[in-house]
Design a binder for these strands. Structure first.
Lengths: 142, 142
DNA sequence: GCCGATTCGATTGAATTCAATTAAATTATA
DNA sequence: TATAATTTAATTGAATTCAATCGAATCGGC
């Protein structure tokens, strides 16, 4: 036991968090490529399916993404015809995003993905619940 | 309760994993910038501090990173004088990385980081342990 | 109305991240 | 020994990711 043990990879909490996140996103790849979506585009569409019309700022708050990440994602979703982007009448600084009918249709093809992915995860339902709560606690959201 | 509930952001396990990973890496940023290291460079140096001499392939296995990510990281660490890169005599395909004296000295400045970061994390020791084990289980490594 | 502060989105630049491919070297097999 | 298969890095290309900065629009106090 020496003072450098705190710097061992196996003693880090952050590393498995970082690695697990990348591994799970990687598992989504084959499923999402069938919908021609990246993972970031997918979670953005999740917000759009829930809210139908929402400002770019609110999307960023929900996903914890800043505009440097979100701006190209939203543009790409608009280019695919899944959302529209327009300035709000009441405040020209606000970018309003609205899901299109084609965007809503995509939800039909996406509905199988969560269960399909759950099959790839080696956690019991209680473990998954426990992990979920710990992560939200880590995010300072409960 | 309709069939689209599985697509709600709040019902995803992957999203808080993805968001928490980015948030925690972001917390490292001010600490690591004092060492002129990015997070990826930091965990690579952790491996180097433990192993002193190791092949690029083994680093990738340890960090779950492929060569497309690792190659520029190793080059950058060499450029800073923290490691050296050379081909193995026994097998020219193997890239051997060795930590330099300057690289070992950097460990002295890094040793405070884990405890400094622990202060930013709102989890009790038991919760942290529990999260650690769940993440390694998710990674299929226990 | 006027001016400074704030908000919002876009832009830029550096670093990841990974799939897919290539190239070189080694090993295994006929 | 030839040839095929495998291993290991490197390269390429597309998409993130975020810090820092900018410009336009709005808001607040006077």
């Amino acid at each position: 036991m020496d003072k450098y043990d705190v710097l061992k990879l196996d003693n880090q909490l952050c590393f498995p968090l970082y690695a697990a996140s990348r591994e799970v996103v990687k598992k989504y790849h084959p499923l999402l490529s069938r919908l021609d979506l990246t993972y970031t585009q997918y979670i953005t569409m999740m917000v759009m399916w829930e809210r139908r019309e929402i400002s770019a700022k609110e999307i960023g708050e929900r996903l914890l993404l800043d505009s440097g990440t979100l701006t190209p994602v939203l543009r790409s979703l608009e280019k695919k015809g899944l959302i529209t982007r327009k300035r709000a009448d009441s405040d020209e600084r606000v970018l309003l995003c609205t899901v299109t009918p084609a965007g809503m249709e995509l939800r039909e093809q996406a509905v199988g993905i969560p269960t399909e992915l759950a099959g790839c995860v080696a956690l019991s339902p209680e473990e998954a619940r426990s992990l979920y709560h710990l992560l939200y606690k880590l995010l300072g959201r409960e």
